[in-house]
């Protein structure tokens, strides 16, 4: 009897949570609904104010136009490839660095930490000119390379390093001591014992890095040139008539197209993070 009481009580307790969540989500999702509805309107209807929620006629053709006006599939792929490369390079350098700063702590760790972090304090628009000239000298214009290398080293790896450091720092010392007693080598300790424990933080480092790369605008604008190489944010600005201005309906169709796959991956990754955690064995 007591148990059922508690269950009912618990269920009741979730109601305010749901209400709060729903309220917050409406504020966040409202604009998205607006975007999707705009993507299905005619060029003229999308300009109407106040906006109509349901298009008077569904223009699925807008989605076809996205691909007629730009090689959007290729541009989407560019964004994905660049994002994946940035993530890979970022994790490859940031996980060891974060681990070293949190658990190994060689002499001068504090100074190295601040040095590594310094990249994120640079305003991108003020370093773009020297970096662009550098890239031009190396023949990197219209390639993915500057977008991967510069972005990872200056902006995403510092943040990912920070994320990883903060994740490693809270792990209890006993693990390390136990490993040392076992005679596990330093590398094994890092890979086998600590790495599995910080999976959620690796995931958030990936999410941050992917997001940063995905949203970059100034850098791809400057480094990339041919239509086949452009990324999504730059391509979005090209759905525009040189004399009449933005074609909002097509832009919104393209934005919707670009958001959906990422969203699906995100939902999927969420589940992975949660299950990865329970498998990680923190409770033991």
């Amino acid at each position: 009897m007591r148990r059922t009481d508690r269950r009912v009580l618990r269920a009741l307790r979730t109601i305010p949570s749901y209400m709060l969540l729903a309220l917050v989500s409406v504020a966040f999702i409202g604009p998205i609904v607006w975007m999707v509805s705009g993507s299905l309107k005619s060029r003229n209807e999308v300009l109407r104010y106040p906006p109509t929620l349901i298009p008077e006629e569904f223009r699925w053709d807008n989605y076809a136009q996205v691909f007629e006006l730009q090689p959007f599939d290729r541009q989407f792929l560019n964004s994905i490839v660049i994002m994946a490369l940035v993530c890979a390079l970022t994790l490859a350098v940031a996980i060891p660095a974060g681990y070293a700063l949190a658990r190994v702590r060689p002499r001068g760790a504090a100074a190295i930490f601040l040095l590594l972090l310094s990249g994120i304090f640079l305003p991108p628009e003020s370093v773009i000119i020297p970096l662009f000239r550098f890239a031009a000298q190396l023949g990197w214009i219209d390639t993915y390379i500057p977008l991967v290398v510069f972005t990872a080293t200056l902006f995403t790896a510092p943040v990912a390093m920070f994320v990883m450091r903060q994740a490693f720092v809270i792990l209890p010392q006993e693990f390390e001591e136990a490993a040392t007693l076992d005679g596990a080598s330093r590398w094994r300790t890092m890979f086998r014992i600590f790495l599995p424990l910080v999976k959620p933080s690796i995931a958030s480092a990936v999410v941050f890095t992917a997001w940063y790369s995905w949203n970059q605008f100034l850098e791809p604008l400057v480094y990339l040139r041919s239509r086949q190489m452009l990324t999504v944010p730059v391509a979005l600005t090209l759905f525009e008539d040189p004399l009449a201005g933005p074609r909002w309906n097509i832009q919104m169709a393209a934005t919707t197209l670009s958001v959906l796959p990422v969203l699906i991956v995100f939902l999927f990754a969420q589940r992975q993070i949660v299950s990865g955690l329970t498998a990680g064995g923190l409770k033991s």
Partner: peptide
């Protein structure tokens, strides 16, 4: 925010090329 092309405003001054916004104007 008001927009002529959507039909809420009496008149606008714009470039000749903006006429593209009037395709399908109701």
């Amino acid at each position: 925010q008001v927009d002529f092309w959507g039909g809420q405003v009496g008149a606008t001054s714009a470039f000749l090329g903006s006429s593209a916004n009037l395709v399908d104007a109701p």
